[in-house]
Nucleic acid binder design. Structure first.
Length: 407
RNA sequence: GCACGGGUGGCAGAGCGGUCAAUUGCAAUAGACUGUAAAUCUAUCGCCUUUAUGGCUACGCAGGUUCGAAUCCUGCCCCGUGCA
């Protein structure tokens, strides 16, 4: 119960619209997949998901595995029931945590990294992750406040591999699951990137082998910013019998990457992926990155930006972002985004100043309203983008969006 | 009136002879956030400047002791609580 049909192709670029069919309904592509790591889109209720026009949600294998444990997973009623979301859901394999709890943690690249952290000795900064050919060991003890240690998810080191990740994803019951992979950083050298890529390929085969349900499964293209590796990875993974393909480790301009490189990596990958299968771009992103991805032929995206930044007071609009906590708020009595028709922006009783006050009061509803807007906004952005492709106006749309962002 | 307790940077509240322009929290200001250890994190937060093992002014007010006081002493002014 999974299919993908390309509906319309842009004449001058690789942009395309399509319909992804899953057991839980359709997704019109290009689409923005909203992140719901722990089986919830933070701050939003199931009713909110509908109001915000969420098409698809992505949850996380690693985090849910930690949250639920083996017993919890055995009795798990499934993500759709837990989230009370009727639409399509995908799960990430836990591969990203190999990178985020490994390389990013080790190199203080999470949350901006503090100066005091930079002075920590190597032993204090060691990775929380150990990668082996067979699978990955996750350290159970994480440093908490004041150097005290905080035990997360039990005392035992946790071991995740391709077979386990697939099994957990089958227990979680998403419509689309993802092969276990090892992302790399722009800082990794050629030799390591190749090694991780080849390991990812072997894990991809094992993931397919272990897969026993009729859930769709995506393979992940790696290979970093090295042209030959990216192309090799896409063609190796692209030949495996996956239902779709995801491109990993591109990062936009986060984690030492660049937007230009990201666009290039995506192109290299897509050249070597089958035309008829859906393509997902992991972890991207911002409007300009989405435009570049769509132009190269990406069908779905997921990113934390709309939800996380909403909780941090950033409101996304066509003109970029409005930071609601700034001391000087333009048009404080106006709606968050005068062009938006989301439930928050069309509520005459809600204003920028009011939302700011709610954030100041630490009212939980502030994060919810901001999330509602951002999710709706990005969804609407994708809808307009789709329409532009259908109207043969993609390039014009892109130019227009980028112009407005510059202002 | 007597007896205690107290007056510290925007607020709360540490410090009780030197390493104090003063811990910490809050507030404020700025920045960050790209397959979520994130309703989070980072930086600044007396004034000045060549931003520094710099200068100046500061811990109710006025004196004093001391090489040195937010810290000790005296007086005064406030504020709490108790007793008359």
């Amino acid at each position: 119960m999974f299919s993908f049909d390309v509906e319309r192709k842009d004449k001058n670029t690789h942009a395309r619209t399509g319909i992804l069919k899953t057991a839980h309904g359709l997704v019109e592509t290009p689409a923005y997949v909203i992140v719901g790591t722990h089986a919830e889109v933070r701050t939003l209720t199931p009713e909110d998901l509908k109001e915000a026009n969420v098409q698809m949600i992505i949850s996380n294998t690693y985090h849910l595995w930690r949250d639920l444990g083996d017993e919890g997973l055995n009795d798990y009623p499934g993500l759709h029931e837990v989230m009370r979301f009727k639409g399509p859901i995908m799960t990430d394999s836990g591969g990203f945590q190999v990178f985020s709890l490994g390389f990013l943690y080790e190199n203080n690249m999470r949350r901006g990294g503090s100066k005091s952290d930079e002075n920590k000795s190597l032993s204090e900064k060691k990775s929380l992750v150990r990668v082996t050919e067979a699978g990955v060991y996750f350290h159970p003890v994480l440093p908490g406040e004041d150097g005290m240690e905080e035990v997360v998810g039990g005392e035992e080191e946790m071991y995740l591999d391709a077979e386990t990740s697939v099994k957990i994803q089958e227990q979680l019951g998403a419509d689309i699951i993802v092969a276990f992979d090892e992302p790399t950083s722009p800082a990794h050298d050629y030799a390591y990137t190749k090694q991780a890529m080849e390991r990812t390929h072997r894990w991809a085969e094992r993931s397919l082998e272990a897969h026993a349900t009729d859930q769709a499964m995506y393979g992940v293209v790696q290979g970093g910013a090295f042209e030959d590796l990216r192309k090799e990875s896409a063609s190796v993974i692209g030949k495996m019998p996956f239902d779709g393909f995801a491109i990993g480790s591109t990062y936009g301009d986060a984690y030492g990457g660049t937007k230009a490189k990201t666009a290039q990596m995506v192109e290299w990958a897509i050249e070597n992926l089958p035309e008829s299968k859906p393509r997902h771009l992991f972890g991207v992103g911002k409007m300009e990155d989405i435009l570049a991805g769509v132009e190269a032929g990406i069908d779905t995206f997921d990113c934390v930006i709309p939800t996380r930044e909403a909780r941090h007071g950033r409101i996304w609009t066509e003109r970029g972002h409005l930071d609601i906590m700034k001391s000087v708020l333009p048009d404080p009595e106006g709606p968050l985004d005068e062009l938006c028709v989301c439930p928050v922006c069309t509520n005459p009783d809600m204003s920028r100043a009011m939302l700011k006050q709610m954030f100041k009061r630490k009212d939980m509803q502030a994060g919810r309203l901001a999330t509602m807007h951002n999710v709706f906004f990005f969804g609407n952005f994708m809808a307009r983008l789709r329409q532009a492709i259908k109207d043969d106006q993609f390039e014009h749309f892109k130019k227009d969006v980028l112009e407005k962002l510059k202002k």
